[in-house]
Design a protein around this nucleic acid. Structure first.
Lengths: 217, 217, 217, 217
DNA sequence: GATGAATGAGCCTTCATTCAT
DNA sequence: GATGAATGAAGGCTCATTCAT
């Protein structure tokens, strides 16, 4: 297998940089969007001077990219902690995947990443493409994999996997978007746990009544 | 009949103008976000001079609010066309609602609205609150209403309605976000029709195998 | 005597124009200054549309010049009503002149003119020069004339006429500037009558009690 | 000793800056008025970039206010250098006050302040009120004080002090307004010294020769 | 002649970026 | 390495001016 000739578009360079800067920048970017984020604010939040940012990142765009790249890697790392042993049932595995997403991503600052990328996708297509190629593609692989395994094993019905994988994660993705957009206007914060339960219940059992209902997970 | 030699420098279109401006502004705001949208561009897209915008809207923020307000109303109008007759089954009604959302919102420029509001929620909390109070609250009412009716009538299982309503719309909402963010990077554009079918299938029947499978709608 | 070859810098053209426009413009220019005056406001005050102004004046500057020119002429007309018969004493004549200034200029809208010209002198040197050459020069002539006549006749002491004329009008000029600048902050409006009396008293009799103190400070 | 080849793009002068900016701004504001003054010009005159102004003053209006405030204080400081010892005669003291005004204010850049405030009074009432309350009120107090003392001691006639104080300063105030408005159009610049002499002469001795004419006009 | 609608040019203000210490 | 000070390059907004009716 030949080594790719081209320079990787995303170097690892900045990953050694202070975590504080990236944390501050992620928070600001998520809260305000790329354009409305002022480096002054990022710096203040990180407790450094504005000019200091330039010691670590060439410019605002590079900082932005580093934030996305770094958060992406962090998200992977978090999810990877959940070893996907193929020994268990597809249903158990799917449950585990979704739970991991909730516990390790949705409830952490990393949850801002999807919102950020979505909001800036048309302004920074290469960032969106990067996210798409790295995160979404892998997500799709993982989820379609489980679905197909379940179908093959007879655990799952023969659903339209190409679309089902999106439907499976949609409620969770949407919940983190919710959290970053409308949380302030709701009486009580969204209960991720119950939300996940409700999703799994619907997902496995469907909405329509059936006399031979399965036991909740 | 002699053709006038000179093009008039501009047209007088006081009536059509507001709509044209809102259309242009919606497109730009959705594409770039509030901060990165230049009024120059909005104006160019609408075919007017920048200053003309100020004849109709006091400033950028007011234009933004008008866009959201107007799009919201337009979305309602679209959805209202689908009369929700309580005569039919809850299932048929839910199906109709979701189909209406796909056909009348997701596939129109109005589909940009959710993405826009989500992206700018923390920058403009009052806009987000407005959207939340007007759109989301009503959406919740409609969907929880159908769910409760279905449960009451025995059509649906006794699911956790407070969460289920979100899960029911999540795949559709996400699909329009998708369309505005990652469409460019996918081989084929998302097929809303198949997506809806897949969702309805999963929603009503669940993922897990069941011998007494219901008929697809 | 040859006719002047050059075009007069200030035509009489606009003097036939609606008085309303000039009145409105004078008021606005005096109140806000040239730059801060919006033609929109002038038009509104005159009860016409902005574009209508352009039917009468080429542009803002021409309107401004017309206002100054017209007000100047009006001021002259007012003052000319006071026939200066050389039969009376210099003192009576001087008194009459100052009284006329108070009653015909200071207490009319024309009082805004000096303030206006002063404020805009460096922005529009030709306007200032015009005012200087027309108004001030004539004022100087009139007042130095009276002073010299009084000195010649023995009514007045042999004062430094070149400076005295300014001193003679200073309190009145300043009073109208006052009126247009600080009137709002004073408990009672300036009583022009008493002010004039006080001035005349001081002017003719001096401040010091001892009539034999002729030593310079 | 080698000369540095390149001029530094800018100097670091945080200490001197504010004063330089205020000086430049005062000059421009006096020359053009608030509205017509472009910050670009102020900056150029001060030798800095436009944006630098914003490091020291929030916006144009704040700069304007700072200019007025600062000039006012500076004027006070100048005048305060003239200790007003009550030991001398009222006449000597009045003379001293007026001379101080001429030498320390009229002949300095501070002389532009009254013209500036007068011109912008109706645009910025709070600035005018500030000037009125700080400068004018104190001026009135000082001058009426001296007049009353002189009257009490028998040095001065019993004049109408409420109006006399204005008359006493009017020629000097007007002279500085003159200087900033019409100086360019006169053959010779106004000789402040002679002007002051002429004023004092008239002020103390009056215009009329006959010391027994007490009949009111 | 009058005016509502439209616009081009200009200025204030912000902010990413750079320089000097 | 860190930062306060400075700036150039936008972009929002205003307004004198012009066009079409």
């Amino acid at each position: 297998m030949p080594v790719s000739q081209a320079q990787p578009r995303w170097q690892r360079r900045a990953d050694a940089r202070p975590q504080e800067l990236l944390d501050a920048a992620l928070a600001e970017f998520v809260e305000r969007g790329y354009a409305a984020t002022r480096l002054e604010e990022v710096a203040r939040r990180a407790g450094v001077a504005k000019a200091t940012l330039y010691l670590y990142y060439e410019n605002k765009l590079e900082l932005f990219k580093a934030v996305v790249r770094h958060s992406l890697v962090a998200a992977f790392d978090e999810l990877a902690k959940e070893q996907r042993d193929a020994a268990t049932s597809a249903r158990a595995q799917l449950t585990k995947l979704l739970a991991a997403f909730v516990h390790r991503v949705a409830e952490s600052p990393l949850s801002g990443l999807p919102k950020l990328v979505i909001a800036e996708a048309s302004n920074f297509p290469d960032v969106a493409r990067f996210y798409h190629d790295e995160m979404i593609r892998r997500g799709r692989e993982v989820f379609t994999g489980v679905l197909e395994r379940g179908i093959a094993s007879g655990e799952f019905r023969a659903v339209d996997v190409d679309h089902a994988w999106r439907i499976v994660i949609a409620p969770l993705l949407l919940s983190i978007i919710w959290k970053h957009s409308f949380a302030a206007f709701e009486a009580a914060p969204l209960d991720f746990e119950r939300h996940l339960d409700a999703h799994l219940d619907l997902l496995f059992n469907g909405l329509a009544t059936d006399r031979r209902k399965r036991i909740r997970r």
